[in-house]
């Protein structure tokens, strides 16, 4: 890991910004600061592997200003999908920056992925594509959102827990032959540990979906590692290569050790 690097950055920041006297804003400095932040995160997540900026291998579609900071829809598209092994979604200024790591299996069509996240403050959002030859490519957008992490999971904690683990899957025709689109919905409060209960003045203990595996027949579609930035009632849309007659199976587990499994029949007349 890059602990030394981190310390250097920290020291630099203190020197630059905590000198004790206010000065006019240097408009270029903030961008440098955001880039430093990204480098620091990347250091932790990817050690010293090279990350090449790309505007072709992976793209992010996110609202410039979120309507709801606790539910910011993000769409990732990977036009050269045959090259893609996995994708990382990183919300730079969330305290736990890695929102999700999704690894595509043999039954996946890695062309597109949609998910919903909580965003705590105005921040860059990075998407990193890992290609099958082990290289990393990144892109970023700036999203204006505020307070997404401390926003409650529902009208009340009890209400938010109702139906925990219930799943739905919806299917739609994909854009090309054999590829179908599926939307997976999981009922789960995804308590992130940063939501405070008024009565007890305590934080609601974290409890969130951290692993989801989607299979089609005996082939893996997706392996998802989630973190506290995924929205309450996680919803994930993805594409898969359909084999008629084979069900979709979802296995999800949360950080309290609960595990849910459900199978869905795929409509066979989709193509």
């Amino acid at each position: 890991m890059t602990r030394t690097l981190r310390t250097v950055f920290a020291a630099a920041l203190v020197t630059a910004f905590c000198g004790g006297s206010a000065s006019a804003t240097d408009p270029s400095q903030p961008d440098a600061g955001r880039e430093k932040r990204w480098q620091e995160i990347a250091g932790y997540l990817f050690d010293d592997r090279d990350i090449v900026p790309t505007d072709t291998l992976i793209k992010i579609d996110a609202p410039k200003r979120a309507e709801d900071a606790a539910l910011v829809p993000i769409t990732l598209t990977m036009p050269e999908k045959d090259k893609i092994k996995s994708v990382y979604l990183v919300i730079d200024d969330n305290p736990a920056p890695l929102a999700a790591h999704v690894t595509f299996g043999p039954a996946a069509d890695p062309g597109a992925l949609q998910l919903r996240v909580r965003i705590d403050t105005y921040t860059n959002v990075h998407a990193v594509a890992e290609t099958k030859d082990g290289k990393l490519f990144s892109t970023a957008v700036f999203v204006k959102a505020s307070g997404g992490c401390s926003a409650p999971s529902g009208p009340s904690d009890v209400e938010a827990m109702k139906g925990m683990g219930d799943m739905r899957m919806k299917f739609a025709k994909g854009v090309e032959k054999k590829s179908s689109e599926a939307t997976l919905m999981i009922r789960h409060p995804n308590f992130n540990g940063m939501q405070m209960n008024q009565l007890t003045r305590l934080y609601t203990p974290p409890r969130y979906i951290d692993k989801v595996t989607v299979s089609h027949g005996d082939q893996t579609v997706l392996d998802i590692v989630g973190d506290i930035s995924l929205s309450t009632n996680p919803v994930l849309s993805f594409n898969f290569m359909q084999t008629d007659g084979q069900p979709m199976t979802v296995v999800a587990s949360d950080t309290k050790g609960s595990r849910w499994e459900q199978s869905f029949q795929v409509p066979s007349a989709m193509h």
Partner: peptide
């Protein structure tokens, strides 16, 4: 009857 749990969940945030 649902106001109390709603206060529990959201009160501090609103406050």
């Amino acid at each position: 009857a649902a106001l109390r749990p709603a206060f529990d969940a959201r009160g501090s945030f609103y406050h």
